[in-house]
Design a protein around this nucleic acid. Structure first.
Lengths: 229, 229
DNA sequence: AGGGCGCGTTACAAACTCTCACAATTCCTC
DNA sequence: GAGGAATTGTGAGAGTTTGTAACGCGCCCT
C-alpha cells in the first residue's frame, strides 16, 4: 500500500496467459466496473476486526487506515491504503484488522467468495492477488524497519519520504489524516509527532502549512539522511 | 512465518481445481522432492539484500532470520522462518532482504523463474503462493503490532507467546537463536531482552534453562496478560 | 458574539530504554 | 580438562520519549 503500485492489469512477458489469463483480467475489471461504490465519511469504518470477511474492497478515493485495537484500547495502525490498493484480502473467514477512512473516501466492493472461487481456476487472477499481497508485505516490512528501532525523527522523516514516493506532487505532501493517525502508525504519541514536525521545520528541512495538513519538503537529501535510508 | 502454518498441499473444497490444480500440486511437491538441499551453519546466509532473486527456498530444519541492514549498520530482523515456510517469494528481480540462519539449518532450493512461470498457468500453485504470502503478511502485521508501541515486557511476552503458538512442545519453548537476534526482532537491545527475561523469571511467569536457550512458560494466562493480547 | 469542541502545539516532570562498564556463564578449541 | 572466545547477565548514569497539563486556534452552534 504505502510505497507500492496499483494493482493494474499486468503485462506478462510470457505467452501462457492467453487462455484463462486474459479472460480473468477482464473479469476483474468488469467486476470492478459494475461493483457497488461506497462513500465513507472520515472515521467511518469499511470493516471491523472480527467481521465476517464477505467482501474485498478497492480504494477509489481518499485514505483508509488499516489497524488493530489492543486490549487496553490503544490503536495500532498497520498501513494506509490509497486509491488503487485492495483491502480485505486474506484467507481467513474473519477480518483480523479494522479498516477506517481517515478522510472522505470511496471504495468499490467485491464479493470475497466470488473473487476467490474465480481465482481457483484463473491463474492470472490468482497471480494478481499474489502480487497485491506481495506489495502489502513489502510495505509492512518497510514499516517494520521504520518503526522497529528508530528514533522519532527517523520515523517521521521516513514516513514523509514514503508519502512523497507514494503521492508525489512536486515536493508537496498532503497529509490526509490526523496527527493521531500518524502517531498510531509510527508508534509515537501525538505530541512527539507534533514536536518532531516542529523540529524538522526549525531545521528548515520541511514546511508545514494549512493548519498542519500540508507539508513541503524543502531539503530532500537532508530528510533522506535523517531517515537513515 | 511466525505464528503461521506450513504451506502444505491444500484441500480445496471446490471442484474447479481438478485440472491444472491437481497437476500443479504434484509439480510443487515433486519439485521439492528433487530440489537441491543445502545445509547452513549458524550465521551463514541463504541470500543477501541485492542478490539476484534466482531461487526460492523452503526451510526444512532450523530457523532463518529475514532482516534488513540500515545505513548505520543496525540490523532489523523482520521475521523468523521455520520449517515449512517459504522464503524469497516476491515480484522483484532482487532480494530486498537478507536471510541468515540463526542455528544449524537446512533449506531446499527451487528455481524462482520456473516456479513463477508455472504459476502463470497453474491457478492452484498461484493460490498457494498467494496464501503463503498472506501468512507472511499476517505475521509481519502481528509483529508490527507487537513492536509498534509496546513496552519491553509486552514485546518479549508477545514474542514468547508467538513462539509458543508456533512451535508448541507443551509449555517449553526452544530459543534457537541468540539474544541479539531477539533484540533485533523486537527493536530492543540485548541488555533489555536479558533484563526483561530475568524480570519475567522473577515474576514466576517463565523459567529460563540450559544457558538461556530454553524457556518454560509457567503462567500462560499471566504472560498473555502481560503481552496485552 | 459567546461558548463549546476538536485538534495541534508547547512545557516540564516522570518513566523508560539505551549506553557503557564489567562480572558470570557457556561454548569451543587445544 | 584447561584456557580463551563468545554470549549472557547485571548495574549505574545518561538520554530520549512519554504523560500530564496547559494554551492557542479554527469551526460549529446557539
Amino acid at each position: 500500500m504505502l510505497g507500492t503500485h496499483h494493482l493494474e492489469t499486468p503485462t506478462h512477458p510470457k505467452s501462457a496467459r492467453e487462455n484463462a489469463g486474459a479472460r480473468g483480467s477482464r473479469s476483474l475489471d468488469e467486476r470492478l466496473a459494475y461493483a457497488l461504490e461506497r462513500r465513507l465519511e472520515p472515521k467511518e469504518h469499511v470493516f471491523c476486526e472480527g467481521d465476517p470477511r464477505t467482501h474485498v474492497f478497492r480504494v477509489e478515493e481518499g485514505v483508509i487506515a488499516i489497524y488493530k485495537t489492543l486490549f487496553d484500547g490503544r490503536r495500532r495502525i498497520i498501513d494506509f491504503a490509497y486509491p488503487g490498493d485492495f483491502i480485505g484480502l486474506g484467507m481467513l473467514g474473519e477480518h483480523i484488522m479494522s479498516a477506517q477512512a481517515t478522510c472522505q473516501s470511496k471504495v468499490r466492493c467485491l464479493s470475497a467468495s466470488a473473487l476467490e472461487n474465480l481465482a481457483e481456476t484463473d491463474a492470472s487472477l490468482a497471480l494478481k492477488l499474489y502480487k497485491s499481497v506481495c506489495q502489502d508485505l513489502a510495505a509492512a516490512r518497510n514499516l517494520l524497519v521504520t518503526v522497529g528501532q528508530r528514533s522519532a525523527v527517523e520515523r517521521v522523516a521516513a514516513f514523509l519520504l514514503t508519502l512523497h514516493r507514494r503521492s508525489a506532487e512536486g515536493d508537496v505532501v498532503k497529509l490526509a489524516m490526523r496527527r493521531s493517525d500518524i502517531a498510531d502508525l509510527l508508534g509515537l504519541t501525538i505530541e512527539t509527532v507534533s514536536r518532531t514536525l516542529t523540529k524538522l521545520r526549525e531545521m528548515d528541512v520541511i514546511d508545514v502549512e494549512q493548519g498542519g495538513t500540508t507539508v513541503t519538503l524543502r531539503d530532500l537529501p537532508r530528510l533522506t539522511d535523517l531517515a537513515n535510508e
